[in-house]
Simulated assay, not measured.
Amino acid sequence: MRISIELVPRDEKALKSELSLIKSGFPSINTINIPDLTRFDLRSWDAACMAKSFFNHSIPHIRAMDFDCTDTVPFLDALEAYAIKELLVVTGDVPKDGGRTVYPTTCVDLIAKLKKEHPHLKVYAAIDQYRGSIRDEYEYVQRKLDAGADGFFTQPFFDLRLMELYAEMLAGTEVFWGVSPVVSEKSQRYWETRNRVVFPIDFAPTLEWNIEFSRRALAFTKQTGNHIYFMPIKVDLEAYLEGVFEQVPV
């Protein structure tokens, strides 16, 4: 079982501070995954290389639309130098400032290219369980598997019943189940409007509720023999992780 934490690469100093905190205080965490956010200068693959000084497993997120499928992928040599052999391919969002060049490359296109040209790489794809119907998402999962995807990272879950449903659908597939604390009504509204999340009836935007759910999700992941990642946004990182890993055998 692998336990990952998703860290936003705001800058080198902040990232190194969080990596040091996790490494020294939470030995159950053995993997770091890093999104590629266009509003920050530090790219995910550079941040993933930095993370290798702290953790053996570091997984950068790669935005498919940033790359021309007819050209080489420029950062792979750097990943090879740091023995990074895993990455997560997502489609990406068009930059709001319009300052970056984007291409009509889909995540399926880039997955197929990477697996054909670099078969030693382990390539994960994304699952968005809120994007549309379960059938549509299942068919999209199959297209990514056909392209060569080795496993998946889900969007964060807030309901174990939905996790159980997807676990049945994804049986036999390697999955990192996502969990993210939502600790304010403003954040809850964001997830509802932007990501189309339907929270369970007992949900409360408190640290206590989210810690308890995270513990239950961790136990479920251990039971089903897959992986989990935590995405702590706008929350005290140390307080959240201390709550999650207290009294939880891994």
Rank of each mutant, 00 (worst) to 15 (best):
G243A: 06
M163V: 08
L218S: 05
P156E: 02
I127T: 02
L114N: 05
V8C: 08
D136Q: 12
V250H: 09
A126S: 02
K122A: 09
K122C: 12
I34E: 03
E139W: 12
F199V: 07
A171C: 13
P27F: 12
V102M: 03
F26I: 02
S17K: 14
F40R: 11
L218P: 05
T221H: 02
E18I: 12
D109Q: 00
I62E: 03
H57N: 15
K13V: 14
I32F: 07
A64E: 02
W191M: 12
P205I: 03
A167C: 14
V123W: 06
F55C: 01
N210I: 00
W209Y: 07
D46C: 02
K144T: 02
G92A: 00
R161W: 08
I228W: 03
Y82N: 13
I201M: 14
F153K: 03
W45D: 15
E174F: 08
I134F: 14
D66N: 06
A112E: 10
I22Q: 00
E86L: 07
E242G: 04
R100Y: 14
W177H: 10
M169V: 10
V175P: 08
V179C: 03
I3W: 00
R189A: 13
T72K: 13
R10E: 15
T206S: 09
N56C: 04
T221Y: 00
D68G: 00
L37R: 00
S28G: 04
A47Y: 11
L110P: 12
I5C: 10
F203L: 08
S53K: 06
L165A: 13
C107G: 15
W45Y: 15
L76Y: 02
A149V: 12
F158W: 12
L79K: 04
E117Q: 11
V141P: 04
L7W: 05
I228V: 09
H57V: 15
G99N: 12
I201W: 15
A78F: 09
L241W: 00
V250G: 06
H120Q: 06
L165T: 14
V179I: 01
F158Y: 13
Y138D: 11
G148K: 04
P249A: 05
Q188R: 02
S180Q: 13
R135V: 08
Y124S: 01
P119C: 02
D150Y: 00
R100P: 15
P249I: 04
L7G: 08
F213Y: 07
R196N: 11
Y130I: 07
Q155T: 07
I59G: 01
H118F: 13
N195V: 15
L114H: 01
F176Y: 09
G132T: 11
F157S: 01
L121K: 00
W209T: 01
A83T: 14
R194C: 08
K16C: 09
M163C: 10
K222F: 09
C107R: 15
F203Y: 11
L110E: 11
T221W: 00
T105K: 01
E86T: 07
M231K: 04
K122I: 13
V244E: 00
R2Y: 09
V182F: 06
P200R: 04
A171M: 14
A219P: 10
Y82P: 14
R39I: 15
V244G: 03
E164P: 07
L110Q: 07
W177M: 12
K16T: 10
F40M: 09
F203W: 08
D146R: 11
R143N: 04
R215T: 00
K113E: 14
E137Q: 07
L162Y: 06
E80D: 10
D77E: 01
